[in-house]
Every structure is written in structure tokens, then in C-alpha cells.
Simulated scan of single mutants.
Amino acid sequence: MRLLIRILPRFGAILTTEPIKLSSHRFKMTEVTPPKRALSTPVIGTHNGTFHCDEVVACFMLKQLPEYENAEILRSRDDKLLREKCDIIVDVGSEFDPEKKLFDHHQKSFQDTLSSIRPELGKEFDIRLSSAGLVYAHYGEEVIQSILKKQRGIELSAENLKLAFVQIYRNFISELDAIDNGVPLFDGAEPRYKISTHLSARVGRLNPSWHETNVDIDKRFYQAMEMAGNEFVGNVLEVACSWIQARDHVRSALLEAKSVHPTGEILILQTFVPWKAHLADLEKEYNVEGVPKLVLFNDGTSWRVAGVPLSAGSFLGRKFLPTVWRGLRDDELSTLAEIEGLIFVHHSGFIGGAKTKEAALAMAKKSIEWPEE
């Protein structure tokens, strides 16, 4: 077998056993005997040929870790060569053994999910893992911390790291697992439309088309890894630097609710953040499900009083603003409600506005105490 080695300036060396045709004016390839790699240079192994989003992301995540940061990537289906040369192997080899650092999921015996590998996370995660999911299940926390240290110079607490790990799996990795394993979006009838712009589809389009010739598929692999990696890093930063902080703001408002109103039904967000999904989760955490009814926040122009929906995506609320106020504005509304400084109440009653925090709070308190309609 001939082994080719090339140097890609951004990502380092890549080894391949796949025949490659290149136009002579673009690259000069040097044929060499299999190298004796330095003990300090690790090698990540994966399959050659057509690449998929799961092993692209798996390799990217591994290269965020200090031990694999400068790793070469060997793309081959020669099991003997892979096991001789590689420190860790993903998406090829028909074996899953984390102690041996073998992370394939194609074998018939493999049925693991995130919940089966990480039972402390509960039974929610029942999608069969891809190679991306396998690497994430075993190295995800280290990958997240490494990215945050490089990108922002921060480190999450153990509690927030667990939250981020779960949320990034929900937001990002579970989709890759499902698509790679052919898990349908829903049971029953065929979907009415096809989504073809997701990350797995974009990675797939970087593979050479049937009519393309003289294509360096390994270079395309690295392009895919950079594209998918940028998206993964963006997700990590959004969760760690925005989503978790938003959750902390909602947590504070929930814990202080009884100081606002003795029922605990009114929450005041001192800083506006997306709050609905966080509130639903935190109510379960603090065993106050269904208690909060109205949330006050400043949207940057005025104060708002918003009804808490029955669920994060629902248009139905636990308690909206009184019917007699709905559709009214300014002086007419302020006079009827006997509260100075009101701006409007939406015709459905799910939200109202006020010029000041004090007026918004008065609106919320009157709404809470309003007789059931």
C-alpha cells in the first residue's frame, strides 16, 4: 500500500490511503514510505472517501483538546494501518471501546444513546449516537471548556458546565446523531417539505459531485471541518456566554418573586433576556410549576407586562391582562385602569406597556388580583 502525506497550512498534516488525482499546477505531491511519526505527534483516524458531518465534527472536537490540537488525521479504511498509526479512531473500524479510544457506531451491536452512556443525565436522550455523539459523550465537557478558554478566557463552573453540555447536545449534536442514523423528525406520514440547508447537508455538498474531476477530497474534508467547527464553536459561545447568563437572570427573578408579590406570581427581570424556556425549566427545579403568571421587563423603550404562556411556545397564557383593558391605549387606558403612565394593552391581553417600572408593576398587581373572567 502506498501512503501519501501532505501539509495543509491551516490544519497541519493529513495522511490518506485513497488514490488522489490533482492538477499539476496546483499541488506537488511527494510519495514517501509510511513515516515513523514522532511520539509527540498524535494521529486521529477516520475513514477515507465520502465524508459525513458526524466524523467531520468528531475530528474537529478532538482537535480542540490539548492532546490532539496538533494531531494529524489519517483517512483510511485499512483497519491494520489505522490501529498501527492512530491514537484514536472515529467512525470506522466496527468497534466501540472508549478505553482503547475506538469510537465507531456502525456495527450491528451498537445501540448506545447519550442516556445509556451518561445515565446521570436522565432518560431524555434516546437517539442512537453517531461518531460525533460518541466523541461528545466522552469528551464534550473538555471540548467546551477548551473552546471557552481559547475564545473568551473563561471557565464554567461545574453546574454551568453540565447545563451547557446538555443544551449543546440538544441544540447541535443530537441533530447530527439523528440525521446520520436516519431518525425521522416525526412518526407517521412523510414530511410535507424537506429541509436541505442543515449542517449535515452543507457538509455533504462539499464532497465531489459525480461530474467533478481532479478534486482533492482531503482538502474538501478540511474545508468541511472548518465550516462545521465554526458553527460548533458559535453554538458553544452562545450557550456559555448568553444562554446560561440569561438563565441566571430568570433564576434571580424567580427567587425574588415573593418579595414583589406575596403570591410569587409576578417576576421582574432587571435585565431583559429570553425567558420563557428558562422559566419553564426553573419552575420544575424549584417545584413552583404553574405559579408565575406575569413577567415585567424593560424592552429598551418602555416597560412591559407579559403573561406567562402555558408552555414556552404556546399562545395561551396562565393569566393575561383584564379583558376591559384590551385594545386600549394611553390616557383612555390609564383612566380606566386608574394607573398613570400606561401605554397600551394588546387586544388579546398577552402583553401590555407602561412608561415606568412603577406603572408596569401596578398594572401587574391589579391584573393578578382581578377577579377570574
Score class of each variant (00 low, 15 high):
N70G: 04
E55K: 11
Q64S: 04
F96L: 08
A13P: 10
C86L: 02
A13Y: 10
D104E: 03
E69D: 08
E99Y: 03
K28E: 14
E18S: 04
S40W: 11
T30K: 14
V57S: 07
L62Q: 07
P66R: 06
T46M: 06
I88E: 05
K101S: 14
D54C: 09
M29T: 09
E84R: 12
V43D: 02
M61K: 03
P98S: 10
G45A: 12
H105F: 14
E69F: 10
Y68S: 02
G12M: 07
E31V: 12
R2D: 13
P34S: 02
I88M: 06
V56E: 05
E18W: 04
V57Y: 08
K85M: 15
V43G: 04
F27D: 15
R6E: 10
H52L: 03
Q111T: 14
I7M: 12
L82A: 03
L81G: 00
T41E: 15
A38I: 01
E67A: 13
N48E: 06
D79A: 12
V32C: 07
S109Q: 14
D91Q: 01
I20K: 08
I88F: 07
I5Y: 07
P19H: 05
L62T: 06
P66V: 06
V92I: 15
E55N: 15
L65G: 05
D104S: 13
F11W: 14
L81I: 01
L65K: 04
E18C: 03
S94N: 15
L8W: 09
Y68C: 05
I14D: 08
K101F: 11
R6Q: 09
F11S: 10
E55F: 08
R77C: 11
L62Y: 05
R2L: 11
D87H: 15
I7A: 06
G12P: 07
R75C: 07
R6T: 08
A13T: 07
F11Q: 10
D79G: 06
K80M: 00
F110G: 03
E99H: 14
L62F: 05
H47I: 00
S23E: 12
E95C: 09
H106N: 12
H47A: 03
E69I: 01
E69P: 00
L62R: 01
D91E: 15
P42E: 11
E31S: 10
G93F: 05
L81T: 01
L22K: 02
A13R: 11
T41C: 06
S76E: 03
K21A: 09
K100I: 00
I7K: 13
L39Y: 05
P34M: 02
L81K: 02
K85E: 13
G93D: 03
G49K: 06
I5C: 12
D91V: 01
M61C: 13
S40T: 11
G93W: 01
I73H: 04
R10T: 14
S40Q: 05
Q64Y: 02
L39K: 13
L74E: 03
K63Y: 08
L3H: 04
S94T: 08
D104W: 10
P98A: 09
V56T: 15
P9K: 10
K101C: 09
F27V: 04
